[in-house]
Design a protein around this nucleic acid. Structure first.
Lengths: 246, 246
DNA sequence: AACCTGCCTTGATCCAGATCAACTGGAGCC
DNA sequence: GGCTCCAGTTGATCTGGATCAAGGCAGGTT
């Protein structure tokens, strides 16, 4: 179930369409979705929307990475979510953004105008269900992250972040063995610090330490190679199998 | 909208029923819900379910308080959610619990057997929509809590927790002025520490400090009086209005 | 070339909160 | 009364990560 029943050539990995349903109804919904859909692109660093501002669409990430952040008046900021391709952005039923959304890399969104999307949601249970499932996944992920923020040491935090990114990456480019993985860190040291509740200096020091111990290797300071994924996992503090989707 | 359309006398504050919909369909759904619903009670301290175990029902809290927690092998634990009356427990679409659920006070749940509940969800968009909305609220709350865990000082954490509990309490027992509030702390110092990512000693010290400064008053060590809610809010680090539902 | 500017690293010092430890005070119980 | 639990408080000390400060290095501009 939930396999893409039709080709989704021009909507990238848009999850809204990945569902199994009566072919006729689906065709109708699909055609309707087509009429309310459009694309937006953002350059790296550009804000998508600020907390408290009107957000007149919901969207799914097609390419690129975006961050959800909160900031206190004195400038302390916490990243509360990382949106990778296929992740959903926005909140049906609320027209105002709860968090700052920023394009971390160049970003393409597949957007749906809010009103008609909500209309469709009201008439079709399948889309709502898919959305519910995705939201529940995100909630679980947020809660797992609360353990990272509240109870893990700096080293465990870094290891956890690397493990998550490596895993999400492996899902996209299948075929990498879980043993040896390589990827490009999509985040600056500062962004990592904001995600982990640390300072950028601590992030830098901990990465250096992991490098010195051979748990990670890096060329430049963005390209990461993990020679033995198990050894990295051992540093996260999680028990052997531990889930933790980003 | 979302007002209870019919009396919900014997289901407490069960949110599943609070929705507006065609009266006839609603009646049918309601009758169906009746047939799959039952109650469970737990004593304070009793586990409801452990992470990884089978959970064959979804439920909503009728009376009492429950906690969602995660634990690392070495015993570090983080509370990732607090379930108060009307909150929803369980995950349609997944039969295995992601977190430990424990009754903090004596607890009554209104349960629905999983299979038929999921069946209903598939046929009726309204229940699914209500559930989606609740899940999105929980997700927002979890993300707001990430800021507390990642970036706030011990004092700000305590103040934030007290503010949340006071607010949730005021929602239930309407009529208390926001200025002066009084309530009974439902959590031990240790539970508060687990929620806030602190040690119980630090929690105790910070509460003592707030008491010494007259920001809170306490009789015994559970009953709390907040003489000036604004002064408490000023200690949370949030900007004046700041949301933050529990 | 020389000079930014943005991102990162490394060192020295400091301090908020953890840790270890002793003690208080109320509730239940013989 | 004396006892044993808890749950909470308070004190003394330690330490992981924050803070402050000084470079390093790659890419872009003039």
């Amino acid at each position: 179930m939930n396999a893409p029943v039709f080709s989704s050539r021009d909507c990238g990995t848009c999850p809204i369409r990945h569902r199994a349903v009566c072919a006729r109804c689906e065709q109708e919904e699909l055609e309707y979705l087509e009429t309310i859909k459009y694309y937006r692109t953002y350059e790296a660093g550009q804000p998508v929307v600020w907390a408290g501002d009107q957000l007149d669409f919901v969207a799914s990430v097609v390419v690129g990475i975006a961050s959800l952040t909160q900031t206190m008046e004195d400038g302390r900021t916490q990243m509360v979510g990382l949106l990778l391709p296929s992740d959903f952005l926005g909140r049906p039923g609320r027209a105002v953004a709860s968090f700052n959304v920023t394009a971390i890399s160049d970003l393409t969104l597949c957007c749906f105008r809010r009103k008609p999307f909500e209309q469709l949601l009201r008439s079709s249970p399948t889309i709502g269900q898919r959305l519910l499932e995705m939201t529940l996944d995100e909630l679980d992920a947020a809660r797992e992250w609360m353990l990272v923020l509240g109870r893990k040491t700096a080293r465990e935090k870094i290891a956890s972040l690397l493990a998550i990114i490596a895993r999400r990456n492996a899902q996209l480019h299948l075929g990498q063995t879980p043993e040896e993985t390589t990827f490009i860190l999509p985040l600056t040291r500062e962004a990592m610090a904001d995600y982990l509740g640390l300072t950028l200096e601590t992030v830098s020091r901990q990465i250096s330490a992991l490098k010195k111990e051979g748990i990670v290797e890096l060329e430049g300071n963005r390209r990461i190679l993990i020679p033995d994924f198990g050894r990295l996992l051992a540093e996260t503090g999680d028990d052997a199998d531990g889930g933790m989707p980003a």
